[in-house]
Amino acid sequence: MALTDVAVRNAKPRDRAYKLADSGGLYLLVTTAGGRLWRLKYRIDGIERKLALGRYPDVSLGDARKARDSARQSIAVKIDPSTVKRREKALRKTAAGTTFSGIADEAIDKAKRAGKSSATISKLEWARDWLLPSIGHRPIEQIEPQEILDVLRSLERKGQLETARRVRAFASRVFRFAVVTARAKSDPAALLAEAIASPRPKHLAAILDPRRAAELLRAIQGYSGQPSTILALKLSPHVFLRPGELRRAEWSEINFEKAVWRIPAEKMKMRRDHAVPLSKQAVAILREAQALTGNQRYVFGAFARRDRPLSENTINGALRRLKFESSEMSAHGFRSMASTLLNESGRWSPDAIERALAHKDRDAIRGAYHRGAHWEERVQMAQWWSDYLDGLQVGVD
């Protein structure tokens, strides 16, 4: 007897899955979890097969019968509906893989496999999201330069020039990936490099005058705030690290016995391991931090979430509260201050200073050699620098 809507709607799960037959091979499979699945049993070339027709109530009884009738028409002319369904699924998957959105996701996945930092991946995803509403659904081979330009012009009109620059660069990255994977013939985003206004170069503010540096150091000593912020601020002048590298310090990286901080490659901008010799002053600051967060993952844990590091704006915010404006000093500025004053001292080789700053050597062979070089000089330089900072703080030039 054929099924009714009431019978389908009232079908309840049992201890074992069971079937409710309709007609023409159509039946409803009721699973133990309560799922109600339409199936069609048929034979082709003497072999019994089954075809999934969807799930109730997404597919009604009437719709299931229409799907059954369509499948049986194909069977009548020796066309296997299961084969047709698999082919259509493969075509949909291929089509999804040729849209800008699909290829952008592949390009980002490639960056993840290449070991790019989580910050880099976040930036790529951020740039992608600016493009998805307008061209995400479009087959990449059909996208015209004007479609990308429309997005960039919209950002330009809002004064978001740096965003426009990054979004264009990301689009170009996706198109180049599509070209090398044989899904596009050219990179239309490359043609737009000169089509929008360029943002003004952003120089990271830094104090380079020793007397003003002394005032900064004295201000830091008098800073009152969250303990982790105070300690991160105090340590910043003594090590030559980028703000993100410092704030994401983990206790597993600190070796007090050897007075060295070893940062894994995935945290470094240049994607290579970096060792930081620690002066006595730096060790003392870290010992203070150990008493505060030694049982946690991060040396400088966030106030509200100790399982996370300080936010990226914490040090800059502290500098603003100390009345050092963004045009004068930034968290990144401690690196510039160290680089300038160390070079001006004439005591240390430029190579040792560059290695301390973890800059990338333009010559790959030379860079590989120098990676392990200058360590002893860097150890001495780290201690001299901390002693020099102490001298500035108490007013000794």
Rank of each mutant, 00 (worst) to 15 (best):
Gly24Cys: 05
Arg128Met: 11
Leu28Asn: 02
Ala127Phe: 03
Arg86Gln: 13
Arg335Pro: 07
Ser118Tyr: 09
Glu245Arg: 04
Ile207Lys: 05
Leu20Ile: 04
Val174Asp: 07
Arg9Tyr: 00
Val30Leu: 03
Ile263His: 07
Thr83Ala: 14
Ser224Ala: 13
Leu131Tyr: 09
Gly115Leu: 09
Ser349Trp: 04
Arg211Phe: 06
Ile230Pro: 00
Gly97Tyr: 01
Thr98Ile: 15
Glu147Asn: 06
Ala64Pro: 02
Phe300Leu: 06
Ile108Tyr: 09
Asp187Lys: 08
Gly54Lys: 08
Ala352Arg: 06
Ile207Ala: 08
Ser23Pro: 00
Trp385Asn: 03
Lys158Arg: 15
Ala318Cys: 13
Leu61Gly: 00
Leu192Tyr: 07
Ala206Val: 09
Ile135Gly: 03
Arg16Ser: 12
Arg87Leu: 06
Ala358Tyr: 02
Trp375Asp: 12
Phe175His: 08
Glu377His: 10
Ser311Thr: 14
Leu20Cys: 07
Lys85Trp: 01
Glu106Pro: 02
Gly301Arg: 08
Glu288Tyr: 08
Ser82Leu: 10
Trp126Val: 04
Ala90Glu: 15
Pro210Arg: 11
Asp187Pro: 04
Arg262Lys: 11
Leu149Asn: 04
Ala76Lys: 15
Gly97Pro: 01
Ala338Tyr: 01
Tyr223Phe: 15
Ser186Leu: 01
Ile220Met: 15
Ile75Gln: 08
Ala164Asp: 09
Val394Ile: 15
Glu125Cys: 04
Leu216Thr: 05
Glu194Phe: 03
Ala17Arg: 11
Ser224Gln: 15
Leu286Phe: 10
Val299Ala: 09
Arg247Phe: 02
Leu241Tyr: 09
Arg305Phe: 11
Arg165Leu: 12
Arg297Asn: 14
Ala214Asn: 06
Ala382Gly: 10
Phe303Pro: 00
Trp251Thr: 06
Gly25Asp: 02
Gln281Thr: 10
Gly346Ser: 07
Ile315Tyr: 01
Ala205Glu: 12
Lys12Ala: 10
Asp273Leu: 11
Gly301Val: 10
Ser186Arg: 11
Leu231Val: 07
Asp361Gly: 11
Arg165Asp: 13
Gly34His: 12
Ala107Phe: 12
His238Leu: 11
Val30Phe: 05
Ser117Trp: 04
Ala21Ile: 03
Ala232Gln: 05
Ala304Tyr: 10
Ala33Asn: 14
Lys158Met: 12
Glu266Asn: 14
Ala364His: 14
Gly372Lys: 05
His332Leu: 08
Val239Gln: 07
Ala214Tyr: 05
Asp187Trp: 05
Lys185Tyr: 08
Arg87Gln: 14
